[in-house]
Design a protein around this nucleic acid. Structure first.
Length: 417
RNA sequence: GUGGAUAUAGCUCAGGUGGUUAGAGCACCAGAUUGUGGCUCUGGGGGCCGUGGGUUCGAGUCCCAUUAUCCACCCCA
């Protein structure tokens, strides 16, 4: 126990961390181009925020939260998703008083008590954006296009975008009634989960993956069929805007996401071929959320994308992530005097902006060269007593193997080339 | 939370029906080269055989529990 990380967590070692950095850097750059600014919220929040924001009836709140009491008996919960905390910050910092819309992005760990498997962890990294303060269908389209651009920028293409409209509270109530009527007779044949959903949130029955439930509900009324004219118009415009932007999507009238705050547009990006946990991103509009967490009614739309799953997709598609920069120069020294001089030289080169390294284990010259090769050094400066007294150094190009003598005073300039 | 599979060196894996000092490849270290990497050759260091218990004269091997990983369900990213 002492020597293993907790279940569902992982150490991201240097051989992997540069890949996370690459994905995150790509996301930051894209967000900058789309005008989104970073927000960093605490890694834990008052439990109540998720209960109210995400919804008491959701799986996340009912069985997946990491909830604990602190020493003052406050109930706190590790960040279970990114949107509710962002909405809380929006309210707390009075962002409705600022120029609208508010465009935020985040890169954050998310914690959920789930059974781990490929592509599913108890702590994972999410990149997300939240666009607050606009009802425009162009807002929905913008965040979807941002996510799509992100995948494209990373070189992914084996994925599909599914969209749906889950309506507003008004049409959802109408639909719920219609669903209850249609399913009343088969209620006892539905799975236990769906029987519970029947009362609490009948819409989610349509999203059940149980084969039997799918058969029974194949002709059940979808939300689509009960959208009010306003929701219908909004959805049509979102689709139109996506089409105008050459974003291909598929409609899935049964797409209902497992967080209660969604209204109108819901969407998911599904990767093909990374296993059962294939959703590499998802989101939607949440026009009631800000109000739910105590703010003035403010519309919003956003998404969350799973970094680990994106990396799985990158691997599956054979996309190459740029390797870390090779080492500019390795200083190999012979003997104590040269070693001290080499140490100073390394600092000087680093100050000059070069990446420079030196042996710290008193290795033989041969071993130092081998080490330099392993570090992928472009050049090695060889420094012995002989070179020191002559005021020069041997500079070896590791790719060609060629070696030349350069005056110590000219080293920096020579290495810049 | 449910069902199934797996767990041997840093990594990938061998180790018929229980039987002496548990092996290989790669990786690591050193030597062949008294101051020159990659290739080659030689040698070396590394393993509470996931953990705990049981059966047995004897367990890496059989049984039970536990933990972890993987797959499916559920859900999500």
């Amino acid at each position: 126990m002492l020597t293993t990380s907790p279940r569902g967590t992982q150490d991201i070692l240097p051989g992997q961390s540069y890949k996370f950095q690459y994905v995150e850097d790509t996301f930051r750059d894209l967000c900058r181009r789309f005008g989104y600014q970073e927000i960093r919220t605490p890694v834990f929040e008052h439990t109540e925020l998720f209960q109210r924001g995400v919804g008491e009836a959701t799986d996340i709140v009912q069985k997946e939260m990491y909830t604990f009491s602190d020493r003052s008996n406050r109930s706190l919960t590790l960040k279970a998703e990114g949107t509710a905390p962002a909405a809380r910050a929006f309210v707390e910092h009075n962002m409705q008083a600022l120029t609208q819309p508010i465009k935020l992005f985040y890169i954050t760990p998310v914690f959920r008590y789930e059974r781990p498997q490929a592509g599913r962890y108890r702590q994972h990294e999410q990149c997300g954006v939240e666009l607050f303060g606009t009802l425009s269908p162009q807002g929905d389209a913008e965040v979807i296009i941002l996510a799509d651009s992100f995948y494209r920028q990373l070189g992914l293409s084996h994925y599909e975008l599914f969209i749906n409209s889950v309506g507003c509270p008004t049409c959802r109530a109408t639909h719920g009634e219609a669903l209850r009527q249609a399913l009343g007779e088969v209620l006892t044949d539905l799975c236990t989960d769906c029987r519970a959903r029947y009362d609490r949130n009948p819409m989610r029955i349509l999203d059940c993956k149980n084969e039997r439930c799918q058969e029974l509900t194949v002709n059940a009324p979808t939300v689509r069929a009960h959208l009010c004219p306003e929701c219908e118009g909004h959805y049509a415009q979102v689709k139109q805007t996506l089409s105008d932007s050459s974003i291909s999507y598929k409609e899935n009238p049964r797409l209902v996401r497992g967080l209660d705050y969604y209204t109108h547009t819901a969407f998911e990006f599904i990767s093909t071929g990374i296993g059962a946990q294939s959703a590499i991103g998802g989101g939607g509009r949440y026009n009631g959320l800000i109000e739910t967490v105590g703010g003035q009614p403010t519309p919003g739309v956003g998404f969350g994308l799973g970094v680990e799953r994106i990396l799985l997709a990158i691997e599956m598609e054979g996309v190459k992530i740029p390797e870390p920069q090779p080492l500019d120069v390795f200083v190999a020294a012979l003997g104590a005097t040269a070693s001290q001089a080499g140490f100073s030289l390394v600092q000087k080169l680093r100050r000059a902006g070069l990446s420079a390294e030196k042996d710290l284990l008193d290795r033989s010259l041969k071993a130092q060269l081998k080490f330099a090769g392993k570090l992928n050094a472009k050049r090695v400066i060889i420094l012995g007593e002989d070179e020191l007294t002559r005021g020069i150094a041997a500079v070896k190009d590791m790719a060609s193997g060629e070696q030349q003598e350069i005056a110590l005073a000219d080293l920096e300039q020579a290495l810049r080339k």
